[in-house]
């Protein structure tokens, strides 16, 4: 299924952010086994934003992202993806998921290319095999994360940081409109963190909407447009980097309420909506 990536002005009945809203949560709660881990989440994420969700362990930051993907339960509130209620949202490939590394099975060898190729599966029919266009998209995704020279290696021989880039490439191969990443830099050595940050920075430059769950903001400050903090199962800060820095310097001041991105001048040029890496892939000719 091909979806026009750029919402046309005047498409949506309401003007402003609503038209470009990729993810919209209103008083949402997420959890497992009917027990909420985080609740009262109200966030609107527009196309082109690069949002870090940060907070202490167990504060529910990953649970939000998993909730958007249907991997944790939604236990209340409203969640809309591309303007569609999450319960009725079936265009899964518009969300690109980069999980933490430890979910993978290494029991059987698999090459970098084979793992990234999984990203094409949702686009393939039950009886069709990957064609030239699919291979081209996988090649471009590998190129983008700097692993083109490792395509034929067994993923189990790669370092933690390289592995994370394989998972980013897999998500890119499905041509998503937003990337949801769970701790992309956790457990990655310093040298690899730089490479990883470069890759994410390159994606941000191309206008990719990203939601990054992370402990380590330092590596990402170059391209983040917004920071959301979670604490004790609730969102307790939402603002841009400057406000986040200010809050750290003046911890005594009242906590920032909900901060709306469009009230602030963007910290970097607002990207053209259809210049994401996925869009570059999407523009490839049909093979």
């Amino acid at each position: 299924m091909r979806i026009d990536p750029s919402p046309q002005p005047g498409d949506a009945p309401s003007a402003g952010t609503a038209a470009a809203s990729v993810i919209s949560m209103t008083d949402a709660a997420f959890g497992y086994d009917d027990r909420p881990v985080i609740s009262g989440v109200t966030l609107d994420i527009a196309a082109g934003e690069v949002v870090a969700i940060t907070g202490p362990n167990g504060s529910g930051k990953s649970t939000i992202v998993k909730g958007l993907l249907g991997l944790s339960q939604q236990l209340g509130g409203r969640v809309e993806l591309f303007g569609v209620d999450r319960a009725h949202f079936h265009e899964h490939t518009r969300l690109g998921y980069v999980p933490q590394r430890h979910t993978l099975s290494h029991a059987v060898p698999a090459t970098v290319r084979e793992v990234v190729g999984v990203g094409r599966l949702p686009h393939l029919g039950w009886f069709s095999r990957p064609g030239r266009r699919d291979r081209q998209i996988v090649d471009e995704a590998l190129e983008l994360v700097g692993l083109a020279d490792r395509a034929r290696e067994d993923v189990s021989t790669l370092s933690g940081g390289q592995h994370r880039r394989v998972l980013i490439a897999r998500a890119l191969a499905s041509q998503p409109e937003v990337l949801l990443m769970d701790e992309p830099t956790a457990g990655v050595d310093v040298a690899n963190q730089h490479v990883l940050a470069d890759v994410l920075g390159r994606l941000a430059e191309r206008g990719t909407t990203m939601v990054i769950v992370t402990h380590e903001m330092d590596a990402l400050t170059g391209f983040l447009t917004r920071v959301v903090c979670t604490r004790n199962g609730a969102v307790d800060f939402d603002g841009d980097l400057a406000a986040y820095a200010h809050r750290h310097e003046h911890p005594g001041e009242p906590r920032g309420g909900h901060h709306h991105f469009d009230e602030e001048p963007p910290t970097r040029p607002r990207p053209v909506p259809d210049s994401g890496p996925a869009d570059a892939l999407r523009r490839l000719p049909h093979g």
């Binding site: 249907g70 991997l71 999980p99 993978l104 999984v118 990203g119 499905s174």
Partner: peptide, 10 residues
């Protein structure tokens, strides 16, 4: 290989 991802992509 990765059940969670498979679920996430539908």
């Amino acid at each position: 290989h990765d059940e969670e991802y498979a679920r996430a992509v539908g």
